[in-house]
Each structure stands twice: as C-alpha cells, then as structure tokens.
C-alpha cells in the first residue's frame, strides 16, 4: 500500500534566489525503507523537512506530497502537528537541540505522549519510563526516574540521541524519517539504533526514510535508494542494484570514496578471519 507520494516537490529560497530542492518525486509504501544519500547541501534534509512543514525562514515550497489522501504541502499547521505527533516521526542528528533545556527529559517525553496519544499524566510517565528502558538507559532492575528526572545538559549527546530514538519509535509512527541519526555515534550506539529501526519495521510495518552519508548503514537498511546532488535526484532504484551497478558517475564517486576509506578496515578484519 502506498503511504506517501511526493511529486515535483521544489523548495526555493526567495531571498537568495536559490533552489534548494528541485522537482523531487518518490513514493513510499508500507514496510519499505527508502535511503537518501548525497553530500551536504544536496537537499536531503530540506526535502524531508518540507514534507513535515518544518522549514524555517522564507522558503517557498511547491509541488505535492500526499499522505493517505491528505496533502501535506500547505496543510494547516494544527493538522500538520497532529500528523507529526501521530503518523510521521522525525529523528534528527542533533539530539542536543531536539530537547528544551528548561524541562527534564521525563517531562518532555511524557508531554509528547499526552499530546500525541491523549494519555493521562501517570500513563504518560509510565510510557516515558518505557522509552528509557527500551533504549538501554535503565536496566530492568533500575529506576528509570534516575534518567527521567535529569535535564538535557546532564546527559551526554549519545544518551540524548538514544532518548530521541526511543521516543520516535515508541510513538509507533507509520513513517519514520531518520535524518542522519547515527552519524555522531560510535559503532555500538549506532548499531543499537539501526537494529531498533529494523525491529520496528518487522513488528509494526513502519516505513522509513533514512537519510545518511554513511553508505554502510544505508545499504544495510534500505530497499530503495535516492541519490541526490545539488537539490536534484541524480539516480534512483533498488538499493542493491544501485550499490552494485551505479549508473551515474556521481553515485560511483560516492561509493568509491567510501570503499577507499573503509578498505584498510575491511582488510584488517577479513584477514584475521574473525568475521564471516
């Protein structure tokens, strides 16, 4: 079933006269994971923020993005807020800025559940505790309140990132938009988030748009792939096909760069024979 259909999405900065994303079209079905790769400034994040009405400044968005028969572009802010709370979650790279420094983690998680799910105070607090447990910030015997009662500045970037991931996943959205969620994390935390996303796809049929420049992670998760450059889609297709037989020179360049960088590591690991 088609969940989201984007057609001719264009984002322009009227003041500077720049086009940040031009004529972007793709669709997303249940269970599916769409990977978007490309360098900084290629329009990956702008495209996804435009879908959710989260662009700041004087940016003009045209084109269409249909979610279950509703048009997201130019949707009333109130309805868009509901959609974001209940159907489409965004997971960002910058967890530090995702939380309000003036409120505790628990208060912010609980408020989200109250607003998005209409939960009562106590129920929402329980849900917040479950989030903290689900991402390993409180072991089964431990009191999650230890983390919930902390303010954002009292937790490390990695811990905040895990809170945000846990929250995005706990809302059980139909679509998860993950914008570079693992880039700043070490491999252990990165793997935990990636496996969480996989599990939720399996269990709930959640569809995912996964934006990253880490091609390894994208290859591991994505069914289909968009390659973006300077605001445009330069190549798209089945992820395995694009990674194996890239048609565009730019795609080949991205792939070869990553392969060169991971070459030493691959050799060191494979020569030892510890990996299969």
């Amino acid at each position: 079933m088609e969940l989201l259909k984007v057609e001719g999405l264009t984002v322009r900065d009227e003041e500077k006269g720049e086009t940040l994303a031009e004529n972007i079209s793709f669709s997303l079905s249940n269970h599916e994971c769409l990977g978007i790769i490309g360098e900084s400034g290629s329009g990956k994040s702008v495209t996804c923020r435009a879908l959710l009405g989260l662009l700041q400044g004087k940016l003009a968005v045209t084109g269409s993005a249909a979610f279950g028969g509703e048009e997201l572009i130019k949707m009333a802010p109130q309805r868009l807020r509901e959609i974001r709370a209940q159907h489409i979650s965004l997971m960002m790279q910058d967890a530090m800025n995702a939380f309000d420094p003036l409120y505790t983690i628990g208060a912010q998680l609980a408020e989200t559940f109250r607003e998005a799910r209409g939960m009562k105070r106590r129920e929402a607090w329980e849900a917040a505790a479950a989030v903290v447990r689900s991402v390993g910030l409180a072991a089964p015997g431990e009191d999650p309140a230890r983390v919930l009662k902390k303010y954002p500045h009292q937790l490390s970037g990695g811990m905040l990132q895990r809170c945000m991931t846990g929250l995005a996943l706990a809302l059980k959205p139909e679509i998860l938009i993950a914008d570079e969620p693992t880039t700043a994390l070490d491999s252990i935390n990165q793997r935990a988030i990636v496996e969480n996303i996989r599990r939720l796809r399996r269990e709930t049929g959640m569809a995912v748009i996964f934006i990253s420049h880490d091609l390894g992670v994208v290859k591991y998760l994505a069914d289909r792939l968009l390659v973006m450059r300077r605001g445009r889609i330069v190549e798209s297709g089945e992820a395995s096909e694009v990674f194996e037989h890239p048609q565009e020179e730019y795609t080949r360049y991205l792939i070869e760069s990553r392969r060169r960088m991971s070459g030493q590591f691959r050799r060191a690991v494979s020569e030892g024979g510890a990996h299969d």
Partner: peptide, 8 residues
Amino acid sequence: LLDSVIIF
C-alpha cells in the same frame, strides 16, 4: 565496537 561496525 568492532563487531558493531556496519561495513560497506
């Protein structure tokens, strides 16, 4: 750390 790396 090593086993968690998703190699490309």
